[in-house]
Structure formats: C-alpha cells, structure tokens
Nucleic acid binder design. Structure first.
Lengths: 196, 196, 196, 196
DNA sequence: TGGTAATCGAGACGGTACGTCCCGTCTTAAG
DNA sequence: CTTAAGACGGGACGTACCGTCTCGATTACCA
C-alpha cells in the first residue's frame, strides 16, 4: 500500500479568482499607478472579496511580485546564436518587447520603491530579478569568453549589471524608446568594454 | 522703473518651519519608507501644522523633490583633473559618499515610482536629475574627447546613461557596496567602451 | 388516507453535533454577549462546521430561541399549593433559580432586542414566553379567585403582566438580587393589589 | 487681571455634524433596528465621515445612550396634581406619548441587550434611566404617603420598580397598546397595592 | 454487506461593516 | 497673514463574520 501524501479534506484555492485577481491588478495599476493601485480597487475589478486577496498574498508587494513574474517571464529570454553580439541583441529586443507591451515597468518601479524599506521585498526582488538576469546575461558572456570573443581580463560581472542598469534607467525614465536600435548600441558598447 | 518693495510685510514664510519640515521629512522617510512617510507624521515630527506643509508644497512628491535636491546637491560634484579616469573616479566617489550618508536612495526610489504614473513628477525628475547628471558626465567625457582620450566614434551619450544606470541599479538593490573600488571598475569599463 | 412514512432515511441529523452546538452557544454567549456570539465562534467552539448550524437553524435568533427554551424550561414551573401567596412564592423562587444559574438573562435580552425589528422573532418570543408565562400565572390567580382569595373586580391580567414586568426589570438591570425574599415581596404586593 | 479659564487654540466640535449624527441615528435605527444600525449607515445618512462619529462617541452604545436621552427627556415628566392617582395617570400618559411617537423603544431594547455583557453600558443605563425613573416615581408616591393616601407599611420601592417593569414589558413586546386607559389601570392597581 | 445519498468537518468564496489611518481642506485663536 | 492645532468629509486599510458554496470523509439506512 502506498501513501499518497497529505489528504486535504477542504475546499481549495479558486483558479478563477486567482486569475481574475492577477488580471485586475494589471488593469488597475495601469490606470492608477502602483501607489494608487488599491487592494479595494483590485478586488472590485476582479469581482472578488478583499479577503480572497489577503488570504493568498500577505500584502500588495507580494501580489505584484507574482504579477510581475507573470508578465515578465524571464525564462523565455534564453538565446544562443553563437555570437555575443547577436545573443545580446536578440535577448534585449525580446525583453524590450515585454516592457513595451505590458505594465511591467510601472510595477517594477513600485516594487523597487517598496524594497527600499521592506527587506522581504528587497530579497524577493533580488532573487527573482537580479540573480535571474545575472544568470541569463552571464551565460551569454561566459560562452563568448570561452569562444575567445572577449578579453581574458574582461569585467563580465560589471558588464552584466551595466546592461541591467542602463535598461532600468531608460525604462523608468520613459523618455527615449527601448527598441532594437538601442539594443544594438548596448551590445556594441558592452563588446567594446569587454575587448582588449 | 520703480521698485516698490514688499507691501504686505506681515508674517511671511517661517524659516524655522521650513527647515523643520525638510528635516522631519528625512527622519520620517528613514523610519517608515517613502510610502509610509505621511504628511501627518512629517508635520507632527516637525512640530508644525499640516496646513503649513500644504501651503508651501502641493503634494508629497514636490516636498521630496526638494528634500532630495537638498540631500544630493549635485552641483558640488563638478571635477576637472585633466584625465577622464580620474574625473570619473573622483566624481563617482563623491556621489557614492552622498548616497552612503543620506536617505537619498529611499527618496529617489519613491520619486521614480511616483514618476511612472504622474507626468509632473517624471518631468521634474528628468530635469533635476537626468539632465543635470548627463550634463556633468557629458562635460567630463567631452573634455576627454577633445584631449583625444576617446575614440572618435565613441557613443558618449550611451556611456553617460550607462554610468547613471549602473549606479541606480546598485543603489536601489543595496546589496553590493557603492565604494571607491567600484567607482574604479566603472571608470575602467567606460574607458574601454569608449576606446577604439 | 395512507401514511407513507419517511422515504429518504439516509444519514440523519447528528445528535452529537446538535447538542454540542447548543452547549457552545451557551458558552459563547456567556463570554461575548448576545451580539458578540457569532455563528463562527459557536461552530468553532462546538467543533462543527458552520453549515451544520445553518442547516438546522435559519439564523441566530432561531438558534437562541431554542437555547433559551432548553435553559428556562418553564414547563417545570407549575405549582399548586392551595394558596396564591405560596404558589407565587414557590414559582418565582424556582424561576429565579433558573436565571441565577444560567445565561438565560443575556439571551433573553438579546432576543427582545432583535424582536424590536424582526416580526418573526417577536412572534416566537410572544408565543413561547409571554403567553406561556401568562398561562402559568393566570392559572395560579384564577384558582385563587375561585377560592375567593381575590376581589371580584381584581385586574388579574394586569397582575400577571406586572409580575413578568418586575422580574424582567430586575433581571435585565442585574443590580438587586432575584431571591426568595424578593419573591415574597412581589407576592405580598400582588395580593394587596388584587384584594378589595 | 482675571484668568479666563483654559485657552483652546484649536477647531472645535461642529454643531451641525453633531445634530446630523443624532438625527441620522434615529432614522437608521428606525429602518434597520438596533443591531442593523451600523455606524457606516449613520455616517452616510448624516453626511459625515465615520471618524467624526468615533471622535465623539467611543462606540455605538454611547451614541445611542445620548440619542435615547434626547428622545426620552425624562426631565419633562415631573407632575404634581395633589393626588397620587392623577400624578401617575398624567406622568405615565406623557411617557407613553414619547414612546408612541419615537424610536425610543427599539433603542432601549438594544441598550438593555448590550448592557448584559458591557458593564459600562449597564452602569450608564442604570444611572440615566433606572435611578432617574425611581426618583420621579418615588417623589409622587412619597408625597402621597405624606398626605396619608398610602398605607404606612406600603412597599413604595417595589411599587416604583413595578411601574417601570410593566411599562418595559408592554413596550418591548409591543402587542397591546400603551395608552391612557392602560395608565389608569396601572394607577389603580398600584394604589390598591399600596393601601391597607 | 455493500451501495449510496445525506450529513459531517473544514474552510474558500463574494460580501458588508468594523474601527483606524491618512488624505487634503477647513476653521479657530494666538502671534 | 502665518502659524500650530486639529475637526471635517472622504477613501482605503486589513480584519471579522455573514450566509453560501464546494470538497472529500463519514455515516447509517436499504437493497
């Protein structure tokens, strides 16, 4: 006889409500900004009770961390063309597409703001965003180094953060566009910075 | 043309109250974060009435824009050593000092967050921060270009934003330190990126 | 006419749950008062699901009407000593005992309060309480009248309500005690009021 | 130089809001009963913020104690005709009028219910209602005793509570009317009960 | 004696109201 | 005319319960 794990004899999380809440959060943050996105409005938009939100997320940041992850699914950013320049160009273009199409930027800015005074938000953001991004970009650059495209003393770690940094900077100031041409300029600059 | 001078000389803006409010804003934002820094708490901490705050600043962002400007007086960042590397190193070290000693990062993150959905905040931030920083860094790099330290096709504009970007990135994720060594790595990378 | 008897005889009302709920209701009302006695708390105390309560009682007042009836079983108040004074004294003493030992007063006050705005509660209370009490006291006084203990023009109906009234008044203000001595004073006063 | 008492340098209670709240409380309790009379609904009806209610009354019972006092101004019940019967008849008729015209009964029942589990409500109710009523009725009967209308061993204290009791009983069961005829029956019964 | 349907505990759900905090406006009396 | 104080109408907070619902598990009759 085989144990099948814990037996749950009670009603479980409603898929419908869960999805409605995530969608409503996106809609409301788009209309009223991060600070203006109230749990009250999200619940009303989603057609759920407030308690249903609080039951599954301890606070607004936790909800929006999940919303952000759903919007900017960075797992889909992996590329491998055989050239650092092309990899960077492709990956950044794809990333820019996400930011252009979604409310990810507004949410990101709000989360960064909250992270300044809430350690748990900072931790979650670091793990789900910084480390993931470092990993993705690190792989591209490491492969380039192995192929001999980069200088032996290249500061890869710094390059990785510089890419993230310039994107944030442009993204959160939303003046100049994040487009394929900009991706190309970044790739060029980074390659020069990593060459001998 | 004749200057008539002030006519209504009764009880004008109280210097004491003004300063107390700015100081209280810093103190409160340090304790409760940007979102948690309420006008109510600032007024109470400053020992003023709420109305005195609303009389002189239209809203929280306006107040914190002034607080930020007072903390991070970027006018004091001008340097001119005769070498791009030394200029960068010096300027960044000085800037990092400001961020290390003050609540500027928390405030900056809050303002960026609000800028996502409030155009006036975005505008003010752009003028008082991005353009100023671009001007300062632009001067350093332009002088270097004139001296022939940089490649003729160097993407100076991008380099300038990259420097701002990496600083924000590190600053707002507050994990790895912003110190003189890091300033050096940035300077090195940028110089390589701008060379032939 | 043919009785078909029960058709659906599967899984009937759980005696254990029923009793546990009544006991829990008494316990909770004792701790938190009538308004504070929530179905949620009663279910938790009884160790049942909320639905089990709602299955058998339409609302809180219905539940507490049953609880009150179980506590203050007025059927046990019948007496017949052969003297109005002794009957009254005995019956009231017995009644006071119930009120002294149980949470009946708290529940009664809550039901009266709800009866002000809910006709069905008012009706139930009238039938199960006022009429029953009038009947019991009425019998005592009628027997006295037949025996010639009372004046021929005695206002028996008013006397009956006066007895109920003074008890409520004392009971719900819970300052002065409801004891045998008090029962005696009531009996004396009523007898005088009903004499010539 | 004369001290003029404490100097209050701040905004004071709004008469308009205060009155609007009391009136709204009456209106809402009339529509939804005591338990159903929510602070939220009262504030909305009064056109005030909820906080304005909570600023001046700690809870619902405190508010309704004031409302009850305003409705049933028992100070206006004093009478002195020279005869106990006439005094009682007049006073009760006047009191019945108040109860017939206002929501006093619903409020009273709610307060009595809350008094069962909240000592402060019980205390307030006792002082503002029971003692006041005892005093008023006590005076009528005492004067009668001095005039020799009553027996020397008359149980005046009990008579007083009996009058209050019978009124509550009729009032809160709201079946039979509280009218002048009923006032007469009470007066007669009480007089008999207090005679030799 | 096994099938089966109502009942059970548990608790998620859409709601309403709670009592609190803060918003931005206002009123007051003192300077 | 500004100030400190703080009341005001309003909106959102996060929590407690409402009464309804769904979910396996249990129960106890009936075939």
């Amino acid at each position: 006889m085989v144990s099948h794990g814990p037996v749950l004899t009670h009603a479980r999380r409603s898929v419908r409500a869960h999805e409605a809440i995530l969608e409503a959060a996106v809609a409301v943050v788009g209309q009223h900004g991060y600070i203006g996105a109230t749990i009250e409005a999200i619940a009303a938009t989603a057609g759920t009770g407030k308690q249903t939100i609080y039951r599954w997320w301890p606070n607004k940041s936790a909800l929006f961390l999940e919303v952000y992850a759903a919007l900017a699914n960075e797992a889909e950013l992996t590329v491998n063309t055989g050239s650092v320049r092309d990899d960077l160009q492709a990956m950044l273009s794809r990333l820019f597409g996400v930011y252009a199409r979604t409310e990810a930027a507004i949410i990101l800015a709000g989360l960064i703001s909250e992270a300044q005074s809430k350690t748990d938000v900072a931790d979650a953001l670091y793990v789900s965003l910084v480390e993931r991004r470092r990993h993705l970009l690190g792989e591209i650059l490491s492969r380039g180094a192995e192929r001999g495209e980069l200088a032996s003393d290249a500061d890869i770690d710094l390059a990785v953060d510089m890419i993230s940094g310039i994107i944030w900077f442009r993204l959160l100031l939303h003046r100049d566009p994040l487009d394929a041409r900009f991706a190309g300029r970044i790739a060029d600059f980074i390659l020069r910075g990593l060459s001998a």
